[in-house]
């Protein structure tokens, strides 16, 4: 018995030694940039790394960030902006490792794109004072705790939800609207509250029914939730998280209308998606990059709203929205932007 495990341990040590030997030969590979990254000097691209909990093509939260970075890269050119990402980092231990590794590799800005990553960022950021971190969706930069290189970003998704509620109340024939969410938390819950407020403000007789499936990934349950909503009278639905893809398909089959959130979801069912509230992170990213190039690496909170165009209502061109409703929607967006309309969600 003893020999067995001694041998096992020897083998382990040997492997470690091998790995250690492999390291120096690997050093000159292109990805391993110098660890010290001061504010990107002219000529060098700005390098961003994103760590996110779901898939980059989730048509929801993670994709909204990847789309924004792609947009920004198109705008600035590939030689000016580089970005890499780690998706499916739903496990926070893995995410922390990824964040630290990207910091070690000298990225200029590391986006911890998930509210569950806060403790990790707080832990890692002080070890890399020359790297900027950003954490979202969140409003805490840990500044009071002496950390100066963390930005926070979030989204006033109640505003988008509000507009959807306004349009939904106008379009609904049954005067019953349905809202679907994963868990009553985060930006999803904010959207739903806004949706309720918007619908109520437009027509007090409208009823908003809410269902939470308690899972970000359970497509089956979410589609049954949509089914249930429709069976109980709802003819306009909205929902958040990547698990709504099945719900959209149910809505299409049953002829209910759909409002997308986070990313543009019109591609899922062009016939019935009225509009999507899209998170356009480019606004926050541009600000952050400007700050970083100016020497500030954290301490500020960016909130995406209609006012700063970080929130955008994207209307589905394939759906014919009546002109008066579209006008009302535009007015609502403008009102939310200039503050004359408040969602009342706090």
């Amino acid at each position: 018995m003893k020999v067995r495990y001694t041998f096992f341990i020897i083998a382990l040590v040997a492997m470690l030694a091998l790995a250690a030997c492999a390291t120096p030969t690997a050093a000159p590979q292109p990805t391993a940039a110098p660890a010290q990254a001061t504010a990107a000097p002219a000529g060098k691209p700005f390098r961003i790394a994103v760590v996110m909990p779901s898939a980059a093509n989730d048509l929801a939260f993670s994709q909204s960030m990847i789309d924004a970075l792609g947009e920004l890269q198109k705008e600035m050119g590939k030689d000016k902006l580089e970005f890499v990402y780690s998706e499916n980092m739903f496990n926070v231990t893995d995410a922390a490792t990824a964040i630290r590794d990207y910091a070690t590799k000298g990225y200029d800005l590391i986006l911890a794109h998930g509210s569950q990553y806060g403790a990790s960022v707080q832990d890692i950021a002080p070890d890399f004072p020359n790297t900027a971190f950003a954490w979202g969706t969140a409003v805490d930069t840990f500044k009071e705790k002496g950390v100066n290189n963390v930005f926070a970003y979030t989204v006033a998704s109640d505003q988008g939800g509000y507009v959807e509620g306004v349009i939904g109340a106008k379009l609904s024939k049954s005067k019953v609207l349905g809202a679907l969410g994963p868990i009553p938390a985060g930006d999803g819950q904010l959207t739903i509250k806004g949706f309720e407020a918007g619908a109520q403000a437009t027509d007090p007789n409208v009823k908003v029914q809410t269902t939470f499936t308690n899972s970000f990934s359970d497509v089956a349950l979410m589609s049954q939730a949509a089914q249930t909503q429709i069976a109980s009278g709802a003819d306009v639905l909205t929902g958040t998280s990547q698990s709504v893809v099945g719900a959209v398909s149910v809505a299409k089959d049953k002829g209910a209308l759909w409002f997308g959130n986070q990313s543009d979801q019109a591609s899922l069912a062009p016939e019935i998606v009225v509009a999507s509230q899209v998170y356009d992170w480019t606004v926050a990213l541009k600000d952050m990059m400007a700050k970083i190039n100016g020497g500030t690496r954290g301490g500020e909170v960016f909130i995406m709203t209609f006012a700063n165009k970080g929130l955008v209502m994207v209307y589905n061109p394939a759906y014919k929205l009546p002109d008066d409703v579209k006008a009302l929607a535009d007015k609502t967006v403008a009102g939310l932007a200039d503050g004359s309309i408040q969602t009342g969600i706090k």
Partner: peptide, 18 residues
């Protein structure tokens, strides 16, 4: 039955524990 009858779509981890 999930991808071509119930949801008519595919997504990562579509079954989610089923």
């Amino acid at each position: 039955s999930l991808s071509i009858a119930m949801f008519n779509i595919f997504q990562q981890n579509l079954t989610s524990g089923m």
